[in-house]
Computed example of a mutant assay.
Amino acid sequence: MSPLRVLELYSGIGGMHCGLAESAVPAEVVAAVDVNTTANQVYKYNFPDTPLWTKTIEGISLKEFDDLAFDMLLMSPPCQPFTRIGLQGDVTDPRARSFLYILDILPRLQKPPMYILLENVKGFESSIARENLVTALLRCGYRYQEFLLSPTCLGIPNSRLRYFLIAKLQKEEFSFQVTNQLLEDFPTCFGLVSSSTTHSSSRNVNADLDLKSTLSDPPRDPKQDTSFLYKLETPEELERKQSQDNDSSIRTLDEFLEKNIGDINQYFLPSRSLLRYALILDIVQPSSRRSTCFTKGYGHYVEGTGSVLQTATDVEISSAYEALETVTEEEKLAKLSTLKMRYFTPREIANLHGFPPQFGFPEKTTTKQCYRLLGNSLNVHIVAKLITVLLQSH
């Protein structure tokens, strides 16, 4: 069997490429396309032999697509038109224009790709863009299956709920019975692990809740709500976190942490962040089996951008937070500092995303740029698993 010719659109830093490599499917990425200069530098650093097209997708002609003669299409279209904390402009958002162009091109290709894998945010599944996608797929003769998946379903302690779609031309059957429902786990050769559209899976519901905050929201005032515990969380939220930490099917964060960090001081939370955002931090420990979704604002914004790590594991969080609102600012800072809280490093987030150990960033890439790029990326292990499922046959 000759290697599959793969086209990677919206290639970013190469998460799809890493997933393809992990799947061990004989394949060659014949072109990767992205306009983000910093992302392209990282992609080229890791995949120097892959042709990288630094042009808009709308700038690629039908003939150029045909000349690539690709068998598989991998793509992660811009998520901003569909994210639930954005304006939800959907197909009217200018950033959706390139995706609509792909849907227009697809039926006109001389040889449509046998396989397609698409990733986007939760919310895409109810968009007009998704309806247009399905219409185009059916018009071209594809079978497809949709998913809402979080890395927790693979035992990874990170909530990152995302929409995925896999499709193949009808002349080749799927290895499982497709359904019009959104699957919340991977199908197996014995049938479907899960086929719920009501999000009954507690792991995915929990992942969904991680995205409830916006980056621009001001800190909430604890005096306005007396139902919170010592932090700004309800008893139900605390119980949910404890339940996640007791789930032995999820690995502990310690397995994903760097053992030797060069300049670790740059990752400790500054005093101003501790004082202003103490009550809304999502604090985890190396022994925890959970972390919230890391976004592109991590390390710059605090609320809703990802968990922070308590490195002083011999200190109880409750003792540091006890009577926090009644002490002076100096005493408050002293109490919080005992927890030694820091941000996850870019390498640690890359580990949680499934990027292999050899994946790296060019030396001139700043920490802030790394956080932004990783926040826009996806989970490599999920992509690898879906590619395996996509290529399996009866």
Rank of each mutant, 00 (worst) to 15 (best):
I349P: 08
E316A: 14
S377G: 05
L149H: 13
Q145L: 01
R143M: 12
P157A: 03
Y115G: 01
T313P: 07
F65M: 02
F268S: 02
S2C: 03
E325K: 12
T92S: 08
I280E: 15
H381F: 07
N246I: 08
L253M: 04
Q392E: 14
L161A: 02
E330K: 13
H353W: 14
A32M: 02
F355Y: 15
C153A: 07
L182S: 06
V327L: 04
L274T: 12
F164E: 00
Y267A: 00
A24N: 11
I283D: 07
K111G: 00
D245G: 05
N246L: 09
P107Q: 03
P26G: 04
S307A: 13
L192K: 09
E363R: 14
K368A: 02
N246M: 14
T226K: 12
A384L: 03
L374A: 09
R342W: 14
E28Y: 05
S200K: 11
H300E: 13
E8M: 00
E146W: 10
F361R: 05
L133V: 00
C140T: 07
E172K: 15
L336K: 12
Q285E: 12
Q242V: 13
P157L: 10
H199A: 08
S2Q: 14
G89L: 09
L215C: 06
T38C: 02
T214F: 07
R130M: 05
P187N: 07
T50S: 00
N46A: 08
A334T: 15
K364M: 06
S288M: 10
P112R: 13
E239T: 11
L182Q: 05
L209T: 11
D93G: 04
I128C: 03
Y43V: 00
E325C: 07
A27Y: 09
M1F: 05
L275E: 07
V315W: 11
Q310H: 14
K223V: 02
E330N: 11
L274M: 14
G375S: 05
L232M: 15
T388G: 03
N246G: 13
Q88A: 04
N376V: 06
V29Y: 13
T135H: 09
E331N: 06
V35N: 00
T365H: 06
S377L: 02
D225M: 08
S271A: 15
T56E: 02
L109A: 10
L149V: 06
